[in-house]
Nucleic acid binder design. Structure first.
Length: 495
RNA sequence: GGGUCGUUAGCUCAGUUGGCAGAGCAGCUGACUCUUAAUCAGCGGGCCGAAGGUUCGAAUCCUUCACGACCCA
């Protein structure tokens, strides 16, 4: 449905005329390109006299009577085209008056430079390959400073295709996202990991502290949930005999939206038998350096003006030590719930809803420590009550063998030596059920099927999870998760 | 969930104390055969997010709602 609008009517009229002249743009099926815009711009000298062809969207037009300059844009860049009535013939030239900014044009000609030195296709002919019936809000520079383009963030998200046409940095970020994902797969494949796929629809959604999306499967007459993590199914595979597995997939959490949260996001989880969390730290360091190498050719990159160095080894510091460092409150104050609460109150945090020591520690850390963690650091030793799937630390009562890597104040992962003691795991689930009963909707649900798997025996295993979206934010200096997701969640428009 | 801000032409934005709704870009008509997101002359284009209220008079003030951004929980 196209609403009445003068601009659209004009273009519909032009389309009609093109069709009458036997140049129906929508009848075209293919066009042979010899080069991309970038290849023409960088390789003009080697190309020499030969005839080239290129295609793209018209992004600017400067008609000057019987000659016209325009730019076409493809996924690699923009190149100028010069079309002269004498060269292409008067009849063909007249078709140009039916071309609008936004249309797709195929051009054939020779490459050269204009008087002012811009590399340009001097057209011998052209073809309209598709017509844009709605105006494209392509920006324009007037004088030194005035820019016009697509600014409205809501429209940029709802109509991302326009954003991609108009704002080149969006395409750039998404290409980097692809490079990162590819680097991860390549790295893990080279390390001998097997990529697997596990169910998205789950009867029990576990593996993380989050509320799931609920749905209903008619054929089985049963309620299901969209997964909130990959963890419990991948561990079942460790029971089954995989030594090294990973999955990179979409998970869903029924939570609010923010610059760091989208309800669906991409999670990488991997598990490696016979390794512990020190091995996972080693893997994280190597993986991040590998990504950085592929993106920027070294082990440093810039995040919002800060230079981040991924050089190994990264600093390691226990969670409670990091809190002491930044608040002066020592580990001894977190031994009882009462003193932990009073420490929180002393720091000015509301403590009404907190009912576990781990919860209070988490809150204080997030507020006072996390923002300071710019260079890479592994925070280690997390309290048992907020780590229901991590092995207890025998040397450190109340703590688990767990770490989270932080870079540029981002939590970029979560890893631990996995619990493989089914008796311990059952106790943790029971404890979580107690928290759930007191109103914590995010406490981990009991999962008897998973416990049964553990009871068959799982080797000692190191596990690691990495949020891909935040990783991309980190490596592309993106302030919002919406900048790294092509179609971020929005409320539907009213009809 | 709470707070702050935003929503005006296709796009980017002005709009004074409440007094005829504007500009640039693009669009249309014309001129122009090396322009630099051209230049020159002219012309169109609006449910001012929605609904209610105050007022002689509302884009502007008040209320509610919708959508979005940022901050906080």
């Amino acid at each position: 449905m196209i609403e009445e609008n003068e601009l659209i009517e004009n273009r519909l009229e032009k389309l009609k005329t093109l069709r009458e002249k036997g140049a129906d743009p929508f009848a075209v099926e293919r066009f042979d390109r010899s080069h991309t815009a970038m290849q023409l711009l960088t390789g003009a000298d080697e190309i020499g006299e030969q005839t080239v062809s290129a295609a793209g969207r018209v992004v600017s037009m400067r008609p000057m009577g019987k000659a016209t300059f325009l730019h076409i844009q493809d996924s690699t860049g923009r190149i100028q085209v010069y079309i002269k009535a004498d060269t292409v013939g008067a009849e063909t030239y007249q078709l140009l008056s039916l071309v609008d900014i936004g249309d797709f044009l195929g051009v054939e000609g020779s490459i050269g430079k204009t008087r002012t030195g811009e590399t340009t296709i001097f057209a011998k002919g052209f073809e309209v390959l598709s017509k844009s019936l709605r105006p494209i809000p392509i920006g324009k520079q007037k004088g030194d400073q005035e820019w016009y383009g697509l600014q409205d963030v809501e429209q940029r998200y709802r109509q991302r295709y326009l954003d991609l046409i108009v704002n080149p940095e969006v395409m750039d970020t998404m290409v980097k996202r692809s490079i990162i994902v590819r680097a991860i797969r390549q790295f893990l494949d080279d390390e001998g990991f097997i990529e697997v796929e596990t169910p998205v629809l789950q009867a029990v959604a576990g593996g993380a502290a989050a509320k799931p999306f609920d749905t209903y499967y008619n054929a089985l007459n049963h309620e299901f949930h969209l997964r909130i993590s990959l963890e419990l199914y991948l561990k079942r595979l460790m029971v089954g005999g995989f030594d090294k597995v990973y999955e990179m997939g979409r998970v869903f959490r029924n939570e609010g939206l923010s610059t760091r949260h989208n309800p669906e996001f991409t999670l990488l989880e991997l598990y490696q038998a016979y390794t512990n969390l020190e091995d996972m730290m080693d893997l994280v360091e190597r993986l991040f350096n590998n990504i950085c190498q592929q993106l920027y050719g070294g082990h440093t990159f810039s995040y919002n003006g800060e230079t981040i160095s991924l050089e190994r080894p990264w600093k390691r510091i226990p969670l409670l030590e990091s809190i002491r460092e930044h608040t002066g409150i020592g580990p001894e104050e977190f031994e009882t719930l009462e003193s932990a609460k009073s420490a929180g109150v002393r720091l000015g945090l509301p403590m009404d809803e907190e009912n576990t020591i781990g919860g209070i520690v988490d809150k204080i850390f997030e507020r006072f420590v996390q923002p300071k963690l710019i260079q890479p650091v592994f925070i280690t030793e997390y309290p048992v009550d907020i780590s229901p799937l991590a092995k207890k630390d025998p040397a450190n009562p109340g703590m688990t063998r767990r770490f989270e890597p932080y870079i540029a104040a981002y939590e970029v992962g979560n890893a631990f030596s996995e619990i493989n003691d089914p008796l311990d795991q059952r106790e943790r689930f029971i404890d979580q059920a107690r928290q759930r009963a007191t109103g914590d909707a995010e406490a981990h649900p009991m999962d008897e099927d998973f416990l049964r798997a553990l009871e068959h025996g799982m080797p000692p295993t190191g596990g690691l999870g990495i949020g891909i979206d935040r990783l991309v934010m980190l490596f592309t200096s993106s302030p919002s998760i919406r900048d790294v997701i092509l179609f971020p969640q929005l409320k539907p428009e009213k009809q």
